[in-house]
């Protein structure tokens, strides 16, 4: 029995380390770590859909937006407790994820990208026009949960890190399960997968639902962490940011979904660069990695880095 629970040890140890370290960190460090945790959740869900199940989605920020606004509105208007609001945000996102999943079922490749792009922009448009509920472009304040004995920032740190560790572990288990193998089979070839008796309809919907749940929960936590949300924060730029994270981390790799957010967020914080420079560096990283190392850092670690140098050389020759 002990053996079957051995996977619990590493995440449990991580939880202990983060718990112990928490109180000695300053507010800024707590904020940055919380932000990374939120994006690790978001990126993990996105990677399950894109990297594992091979569904090309460019409207992922919509789930983040739905989660963020659901959490804010449920707490403000219905006075729901924080934990309930976060879970409800995740569930609401799942409903939207399933709806999109159904719409794109007969479609492949870039048609998925087009539908999800339109979906992402529709969500931003609705959020900015439905002023009674969302306060439009003015945005909404989001309450922070109060945990007795903990500062608000430390509480957020524990909540986000704890959730991230649990959800990443859940994703690792999922990937190793029958569902995870079905995702990969569908990504490699839907025809082959269906020949093997894998229901592509069911597993594509599962992939959308799960990644939407991760996006919704991440959105709820992000809104709470930032304390204030506007529709503008969930435009295509946000999807490109998380796309950059999973591409440089490694598509189809859970480790990559952790590495990517760390690099992108720490990079932005350390360099203290403006929004525009962040956009440029994210774009450049995205373009650079997709050309030189399409499997990301996780892929480079698996294969030899000489591949990369060979690729650079052949590119230079061709130019």
């Amino acid at each position: 029995m002990a053996g079957s629970f051995s996977w619990l040890r590493a995440p449990a140890a991580l939880l202990v380390v983060f718990a112990v370290v928490g109180p000695v960190l300053d507010n800024y460090q707590l904020y940055v770590l919380s932000l990374i945790a939120v994006y690790v959740i978001f990126a993990t869900g996105y990677n399950l859909l894109m990297g594992f199940a091979g569904q090309f989605d460019v409207g992922q920020a919509a789930f983040l937006a739905i989660g963020a606004y659901a959490a804010a509105i449920l707490q403000i208007h219905l006075q729901l407790p924080f934990a309930v609001a976060v879970i409800a945000a995740g569930v609401l996102a799942v409903l939207f994820g399933l709806a999109i999943g159904v719409v794109v079922l007969p479609l492949r490749h870039f048609y998925l990208a087009l539908v999800t792009l339109a979906f992402g922009q529709t969500v931003v448009l609705v959020l900015s026009l439905w002023r009674d509920l969302t306060n439009g472009f003015q945005g909404l304040p989001v309450p922070r949960p109060e945990i007795p004995g903990l500062s608000s920032n430390l509480a957020m740190y524990y909540i986000t890190i704890g959730t991230a560790i649990v959800m990443v572990q859940a994703a690792r288990n999922l990937v190793a399960s029958r569902i995870g193998r079905a995702f990969v089979a569908i990504r490699e070839s839907e025809i082959a997968a269906s020949v093997l008796g894998i229901s592509t309809v069911r597993y594509r919907l599962i992939a959308y639902a799960i990644s939407a749940f991760y996006g919704g929960v991440a959105g709820a936590l992000l809104a709470t962490l930032l304390s204030y949300i506007t529709p503008d924060a969930f435009r295509l730029t946000e999807t490109i940011k998380v796309l950059t994270m999973i591409v440089i981390g490694g598509m189809g790799s859970i480790a990559g979904s952790i590495i990517g957010p760390i690099i992108v967020i720490l990079g932005a914080e350390f360099l203290r660069i403006s929004q525009s420079f962040q956009e440029i560096t994210n774009g450049a990283l995205l373009l650079g990695f997709i050309i030189l190392a399409p499997m990301g850092i996780a892929g480079l670690a698996l294969h030899r880095t000489t591949d990369l140098f060979g690729k650079v050389r052949s590119l230079l020759r061709r130019q």
């Binding site: 730029t237 490109i240 950059t244 525009s276 420079f277 962040q278 956009e279 440029i280 994210n282 774009g283 450049a284 990283l285 995205l286 373009l287 650079g288 997709i290």
Partner: peptide, 8 residues
């Protein structure tokens, strides 16, 4: 990626 660079 290129679109993001251009926008920035």
């Amino acid at each position: 990626g290129m679109a993001a660079i251009m926008k920035g």
